[in-house]
């Protein structure tokens, strides 16, 4: 590895995952359908990417019910905020070069 050279977090360096994280960093929590609507992703792809972010503990996922309707709510974690900030800082580093 070259010193002073930071790699972009591969988990965030993907179109959809980055979009999910950018949405979640600006809100307190968002439902699956909201993220789906805003990113324009398919439900299948979105679930896979949300699982990856959840497994990395970047986001928290809670399942609940609104009346009889099941609802999935996502929320960014402290670890996720840190990862997102690092990603943005690294990106800025690249652009300045």
């Amino acid at each position: 590895m070259i010193p002073d050279f930071k790699d972009l977090d591969p988990l965030l360096h993907s179109q959809l995952r980055l979009a999910i994280m950018s949405l979640l960093i600006s809100v307190q929590s968002a439902e699956f359908v909201f993220i789906k609507e805003k990113t324009g992703a398919t439900a299948g792809n979105l679930s896979v990417q949300i699982d990856k972010l959840m497994n990395a503990e970047y986001i928290e996922v809670t399942k609940s019910f609104k009346g009889k309707k099941p609802v999935t709510t996502c929320k960014i974690t402290k670890k996720g905020i840190k990862a997102f900030e690092d990603y943005v800082n690294t990106l800025q580093g690249y652009i300045k070069k």
Binding site: L8, H13, S14, Q15, L18, A19, S22, L23, I25, S26, V27, A30, K38, T39, Y87, V88, L91, Y94, I95
Partner: peptide, 17 residues
């Protein structure tokens, strides 16, 4: 993703929310 694309996604999503 190119750096510019990454930035565009971030800005666009933050605006949306």
């Amino acid at each position: 993703l190119s750096n510019e694309e990454s930035l565009r996604i971030i800005t666009q999503m933050i605006q949306t929310a």
